[in-house]
């Protein structure tokens, strides 16, 4: 959770904690799905599973119609329920806010998947452990941006440290209206959207919940 600093006496830069987050500016998103492809390639995500994907809806009645996109990924919450519910501490929170899964400790009980309010976790059918987006922490640690951010052709994704006032993400977040998914659950998601559509953010909009196809976990 970002530390609150008073505008009169700014927090000392030495004490400032890094907190990685992502802003997705949907005014620039063209729905090309290249973030999904880049993520699959970077993280070896198996067939049929996604760490990052783009939900697409159509709305309106001809001729007033539009297509809305919602690029979805793990929100790397500041107060994640998956971390609280993991019985073996396989899910951990890094000091910079990234939520990861220790692949050597995960017992595959799938309780984190059942309790995640955003349904971003999956079981890797080959390795039989739970995986999810972790902002490409192997790239971030080497000073690179996550694969989806680097590949985004409209520069809709902005990644960085929201506690650093000079970073692009902090400036974008301060000067634009941002929303998160399901803020009422108190999980404090750290993927923020600019100009996200109401119906795209609603999981039950545009589907008949009696006829959803289910997928086996693995």
């Amino acid at each position: 959770m970002p530390e609150k600093s008073s505008p009169i006496a700014p927090a000392d830069d030495e004490k400032r904690k890094t907190r990685y987050a992502m802003v997705i500016d949907l005014r620039h998103c063209v729905g090309c799905h290249s973030c999904s492809v880049a993520c699959k390639s970077e993280n070896e995500v198996p067939l049929g599973k996604f760490r990052s994907w783009v939900k697409v809806i159509e709305k309106g009645r001809y001729p007033d119609v539009s297509r809305q996109f919602l690029p979805s990924l793990c929100n790397n919450c500041a107060n994640p329920i998956c971390n609280r519910n993991c019985p073996v501490r396989a899910t951990y929170i890094r000091p910079d806010g990234i939520v990861g899964v220790n692949q050597h400790r995960c017992i595959g009980c799938m309780y984190c998947m059942a309790s995640c309010p955003y349904d971003v976790r999956y079981i890797n059918p080959l390795r039989k452990i739970v995986q999810k987006c972790f902002f490409c922490d192997h790239r971030v640690d080497k000073g690179l941006e996550p694969a989806c951010v680097e590949t985004c052709l409209g520069k809709a994704r902005i990644f960085g440290d929201i506690n650093d006032p000079n970073s692009e993400i902090a400036q974008v977040m301060s000067t634009n209206p941002v929303v998160t998914l399901k803020p009422d659950l108190g999980t404090e998601p750290h993927v923020f959207y600019i100009a996200a559509d109401y119906d795209a953010m609603d999981p039950t909009s545009g589907v008949d919940i009696n006829f959803i196809l289910f997928e086996e976990p693995y």
């Binding site: 809806i57 799938m110 999956y122």
Partner: peptide, 12 residues
């Protein structure tokens, strides 16, 4: 509203 594309819905 029509859902065109989404990742699969799983029942863990």
């Amino acid at each position: 509203v029509n859902l065109l594309y989404n990742s699969p819905h799983q029942i863990p």
